[in-house]
């Protein structure tokens, strides 16, 4: 049951050394057990059930808060998200248009170059 004092040698009376050895052994056991547990299907299944219960609880509390905010005529998280997502869509549209303008200005530059070249060759003729 108890550890053999001989294994600590001269350091037995040193509390720091004693603690180190003690926690060292605890650590080994902890790592071994954890490594076994995190691969164990029975453990994973019970964790999964725990997570699902937690998610159900969160869903219920979110619904309650939403109902409360709606009754108080306050914006819910869903409302603010909608506004933010709407703004994001507008930003994307502006950036898409910016890209199209860049492409069109490139095309225009190329056309101007080609036009300039063809005018030069016409003049030579």
């Amino acid at each position: 049951m108890f550890m053999d004092p001989a294994q600590f040698g001269k350091n037995f009376m040193d509390p720091t050394e004693f603690n180190k050895q003690f926690y060292g052994q605890m650590e080994q056991v902890f790592i071994e057990k954890m490594n076994e547990m995190i691969k164990n299907p029975a453990f994973l299944s019970s964790i999964s059930k725990g997570v699902e219960t937690g998610l159900d609880g969160k869903k219920k509390s979110d619904d309650l808060i939403k109902k409360y905010l709606e009754k108080m005529n306050m914006p819910t998280r869903e409302d603010t998200s909608k506004i933010l997502q709407y703004l994001q869509k507008i930003e994307t549209k502006i950036l898409d248009l910016e890209d199209k303008i860049e492409d069109l200005s490139d095309d225009l530059k190329n056309l101007k170059k080609e036009y300039g070249k063809s005018r030069k060759t016409e003049k030579k003729k």
């Binding site: 299944s45 964790i47 999964s48 997570v51 699902e52 998610l55 969160k58 869903k59 979110d62 998200s81």
Partner: peptide
């Protein structure tokens, strides 16, 4: 063991 749809639907954004 991992219901991805439930996770995303519960947490949302």
């Amino acid at each position: 063991t991992f219901n991805i749809d439930k996770v995303v639907e519960t947490f949302g954004n």
